[in-house]
Write a protein that binds this DNA or RNA. Sequence first.
DNA 1: AAAAATAATGCAATCGGTTGCACTGTAAAT
DNA 2: ATTTACAGTGCAACCGATTGCATTATTTTT
Lengths: 343, 343
Amino acid sequence: MARDKDITIYDIATQLGVSPSTVSRALKNTNAVGNATRKKILATARELGYQTNTFASNLRKQRSNTLGVMVHELRSNFITSVLSGIENVAAETNYDLIIAHSSENAKKERANANNLFHKRVDGLIASLASDTSNLHHFKSFVDKSLPVVFFDRVFEQDLGAKVIINNFKAGYDATQHLIRQGCERIAHITSSLNRNVYSERLRGYKAALADNGIAFDERMVIVDGLAEEHAAYSAKRILKLSPLPDGIFITNDFCAAVVMQVLKDAGIHIPEDMAIVGFNNDAISKVISPKLTTIDYPGYEMGQIAARQIISHLKGTSNINTTNTIILHSELIIRESSLKQIS
Amino acid sequence: MARDKDITIYDIATQLGVSPSTVSRALKNTNAVGNATRKKILATARELGYQTNTFASNLRKQRSNTLGVMVHELRSNFITSVLSGIENVAAETNYDLIIAHSSENAKKERANANNLFHKRVDGLIASLASDTSNLHHFKSFVDKSLPVVFFDRVFEQDLGAKVIINNFKAGYDATQHLIRQGCERIAHITSSLNRNVYSERLRGYKAALADNGIAFDERMVIVDGLAEEHAAYSAKRILKLSPLPDGIFITNDFCAAVVMQVLKDAGIHIPEDMAIVGFNNDAISKVISPKLTTIDYPGYEMGQIAARQIISHLKGTSNINTTNTIILHSELIIRESSLKQIS
DNA sequence: AAAAATAATGCAATCGGTTGCACTGTAAAT
DNA sequence: ATTTACAGTGCAACCGATTGCATTATTTTT
C-alpha cells in the first residue's frame, strides 16, 4: 500500500469548508476562533492524524523550538546526569535538544557554537572545554539576543547566565575535613586551572591550609587530565613525593578511584596512610574500597535548573539577564576513605 | 547595533545579478552551473557569511537530515559510549541527532517513537526498553520506508536491521571461565528476560553448565533491575542461598560492583569464596578491588556502525535490508575477581 | 433604532530553498 | 553549412504554517 501524503492544515480546511488560517488558529489556542468551528477542527485533526510540520512552522516563525547543549565531554557520569535533567525539562516543555560535545577542545567548541547558531537554536546551555580561553564564539548569540546559560564550567565575570556550585567552599570543606582528620601534608590532584571549577577549588584548598597554619607547597598540587591514563600518572607522581602526603583532595571521583587503585597496589593503606577526598559523588564512589568521601554535586538538578532558566526566559516569564548567577548547594559526604579518626 | 537579517540566497543573487536558482545550484555541488559563476557565488557567500536555512531546505526537500536516537537509559556508561560513537559519525556526515530516552518504559518509548516520527527524522537508531513487548510503534517508520536500526536490545526475529554482539557466546564464555576456575555452584544475576541480551546470556550460561555436566538450578538465577538498590537486594538474595554459590556471573559491571561491595561487607572473599564475572567492561571494572573480570562490549564501535549503516542506506550506498544483522566481536577479559587458580 | 464595538473568518503575502521546465547560445556532429 | 546536443541559466511553482489586514456578522451601547 502506497503511503499517503501527510495531512496538512489545507486538508482539514478543505474537508470542513473553512480557510487554512482558521485551522491554523484553531490548532493553537488563539481565542479568535468560534467555539463550534474550533471543535470541528480539532476533531477532524485528530481523526485525520494531523501533525504540525515543524519545518514550515519554524521557517515562518523564525524560531526552532530547540535548545542547543554544548558539553565538554559526553562520557562522564556528571555530564550525563546534567543532560538527563535538561532532557527532563525540555520534554515537559516541548523543546527539542541538539547535543554537541567538544571533547575538551576549544576549536571544536567554537565549531559547535557556530553550528548550533546556524541551526537556529532558540537558546544555548554550555559547559566550557578545558582550553577555551574566551567567549568570542558566543557573541553571535548575544548579538541576536539569544539566551545563553553556562553551567559547571563558566567564566564567572563574563557574559551569560551561570548555574554553578560554590567551588571555593567545596574545596575549602574538603581540605578542612582532611585537616580535621589529622592530615598535615595534603596533596591536591586537579585539572586545568583555566577552568573556574578547578581554580576555585584550589583557592579553597589554599585558604583552608592557611586558616590552619599549614604552609602551601606547590609541589603538592598536581595538574593533569582526569581520564584513566592521566590519573594513573598523577598517582605515580604522588608516590614520588618525599615526604609522602598523608591526605589527597582529588577533584574527580573517577580519577580518585584510579589513584586509590594505584596507591593500594603500591602498598599504601587508605585512609590510614593517606586519606582521600574525591569530588562529584558519582555512583562509583560507593562501590570502591574504601568507600570514597566526596563532594555531592547535584548534576541532575543543575541540568533542570539551567533548562528552566532558559525556557522561562524564552517564554517571557523571567529575564535571564537579571538573575545572573545561580549557586546550587553542594556538600561534603564523609565515607571511609578519609576517616582516620573515629570522632 | 541592530542585528542585520540573515543572508539568504536572494541577497547573493541580487548582489551578483544572477537568479536564486543558480545560487542554490552553485552552493550544492550540482554540475549544472558554469565554473566562473560558481566561483563568484561561493566567494560572495563566504564573504557575506551565508548559512543555509535548514527549515526552508527541509521543508522543500521533505527530509530533515536528522537521525532519531532512542535509548532505554541515558545514565549508563555503555549507552554514553554508543551515543558518542553515533555522534562521531553523524558529525562527520553532517547529520543532526535527536536523542530521546525511555527510562526503561515501553509507554514512554512509544511516545518517543511517535514524536520522532512527527519530527520527521530520516532514520532511527534504537535500543528497547525493558518492558517493550512488540514493535508496533515502529510501523509508521517502516510504512514510510524510513530505515530503522536497533542495537544492543533488539527483537532478533522482527523488523529492522540490528547491531548486536553474540550474547549467547558471551554468556557461555563467562560461565565456562568460572567453571574452569573450579566453580561448581554458579549463580547468575541478570535483568528482564524479555530482552534478548539477557535471555541469550542466560541461554549461554545454561549451555555451559550443561556441557560441563552441572545441573541447572533455577534458584541460582536472580532476575531484577541493575541499578544500585536492586543490585544490593540481589546481593542479599545471594547471601541467603544455601549452600552459597562459589561463583556469580552478573550481566552488568556496575551491578557487579555493588554486589561485590555487599558481599565483601558480609565477609566473603572474592575470588576465593566467590568468583565474579561482570559484563560490559565499563571503566568501573578496573578501579574496584579486586579488579573485575568482564566481557568487553564495544559500545563506541556499536554506535559508529549503527550510524554508518543508517547513513549509507540514506545516501543510497547500501541497502539496510540486505545486511540485516551485524554481530560485533566481544570477548572475555580476565582480571582478579575470578582468578581462583593461577593457571 | 442607529452607531459603535467586538467576534469570527478569509485573503494573500511571507518565511528561504529547491527543482521541473523552458530558453539561449555555443560546441560537436554530419 | 546545417542540424543536433548540451551546458548554463532563469522562471515560477512549490513545501506548509503563520499573521496583518480586510471583511462580514453579531452583539452591545447609547
